[in-house]
């Protein structure tokens, strides 16, 4: 096994997801299959190869520091599930 059930539960917590027992089992099996397939990468010799992050690497995509129009507060809050005044409202964070 590349990945055990308790590790799947740990990763789910990192990803802010939760699963039923049955879902966890299904995911564990599927992720195992996929990760076993990934093992083939070990056959590729990558000694001294720089990791590639972007196909066309752009360095320092600077722009002029100009004040431009941005979204209004109203437009920004318009899609929020819960708003009070000028704020996004969420369930309590601290006991």
């Amino acid at each position: 096994m590349k990945i055990e059930k308790d590790e799947v539960t740990h990763v789910a917590r990192l990803a802010r997801l939760e699963f039923t027992e049955a879902e966890t089992e299904k995911f564990t099996a599927q992720l195992n299959n996929i990760l076993i397939y990934m093992d083939m990468l070990n056959r590729a010799d990558t000694t001294g190869v720089e990791p590639m992050t972007h196909a066309i690497a752009q360095k320092n995509a600077f722009r002029e520091d100009l004040v431009k129009e941005s979204l209004s507060r109203e437009a920004t809050l318009a899609n929020a599930p819960d708003v009070r005044g000028d704020f996004f409202r969420v369930p309590k964070v601290i006991e």
């Binding site: 899609n79 599930p81 309590k92 964070v93």
Partner: peptide, 21 residues
């Protein structure tokens, strides 16, 4: 929080994240 679906079952923020996602 900012847009999209929110589950109303979460008792605190962490639960709300998990249940919504």
């Amino acid at each position: 929080v900012k847009y999209g679906f929110r589950s109303l079952d979460g008792r605190d923020l962490m639960e709300m994240y998990k249940k919504s996602r």
